[in-house]
Computed example of a mutant assay.
Amino acid sequence: MIAMQYGFTLPADYDMAIIDRRIRDKGPMTDGFPKLGFKAYLTARKGELGATDNLYAPFYLWRHAEGASDFLCGPGFEAVSQSFGRPQVATWIVWHGDVAPDVAEARFATREILPLGTDVALASVRDSETACARERLDQAGVLASVAAFDPSGWRMIRFALRADAPAVSPSTRIYRVGHVSLP
């Protein structure tokens, strides 16, 4: 599995209703996309839930790398790139990804990116983060949980889709979910 996210920082005075409409109109186009675990259409609004910028930042869980490749080489990503410019796409190798049956009900997402020090045993971190990801899915309101790492920057990510807004934390970015596409 591969996790993937790209984002666009929008001007402080940007009318985020434009992005909401785009998600509403175009979001269902990725429903049923081959090899997809899920795609969460994410936004953040400056001043809400700890956000310092207006953002559009979809997050993907791919069951197979070919799905990510097909999407990035396809017309949907081309349209996004033409509208906003071609973004840098962050990718992570997934240690663990769980999705609850009612994941489409998610309204919020959290993302935490942490450095992996050179002194840590990666196998131990993987085991610990996998256990934490499984436990997160057992928490009330958590509808998806992903633990993954980026070996090019030696960082790990904790991502969750949630039914309810979590508490604001300085180390965690909170997004609103506009739509969840499923395979």
Rank of each mutant, 00 (worst) to 15 (best):
M4A: 08
Q5H: 10
Y6D: 00
G7L: 06
F8K: 10
D13H: 05
Y14Q: 06
D15H: 08
A17Y: 01
A17C: 00
I18R: 08
I18T: 08
I19V: 07
I19Q: 03
D20K: 04
R21S: 07
R22I: 00
I23K: 07
D25R: 12
G27Q: 06
D31W: 09
F33N: 05
L36E: 03
F38P: 03
L42T: 04
T43V: 13
A44S: 08
A44E: 02
A44G: 02
A44Q: 05
R45V: 06
K46V: 02
L49W: 10
Y56R: 06
Y56L: 09
A57S: 14
P58Q: 11
F59V: 01
Y60N: 03
Y60W: 03
R63C: 00
H64G: 05
A65E: 14
G67R: 08
S69Q: 15
F71L: 14
L72A: 10
L72N: 07
G74T: 01
G76Q: 07
E78W: 00
A79D: 11
V80G: 04
Q82K: 14
S83G: 07
F84R: 10
G85V: 08
V89I: 15
T91V: 05
W92M: 05
V94M: 15
W95I: 08
W95H: 00
G97Q: 02
G97W: 03
D98K: 06
V99T: 13
P101V: 11
V103R: 06
E105G: 04
R107Q: 10
R107S: 00
R107P: 00
A109P: 09
R111C: 02
E112M: 13
E112D: 09
I113C: 05
P115S: 08
P115M: 11
G117P: 08
T118K: 07
A121E: 15
A123Q: 15
S124C: 05
S124E: 15
S128T: 08
S128R: 14
A131L: 15
E135Q: 14
E135M: 14
D138P: 00
G141L: 06
G141P: 01
L143Y: 04
L143H: 01
L143S: 04
A144R: 12
A144V: 06
S145D: 13
V146C: 09
V146N: 04
V146D: 09
A147L: 14
D150Q: 05
G153K: 04
R155Y: 02
M156P: 01
R158A: 13
F159R: 01
L161D: 14
D164F: 00
A165E: 15
P166Y: 06
V168K: 06
S171F: 11
T172D: 15
V177S: 13
H179V: 11
S181P: 08
L182T: 10
P183R: 07
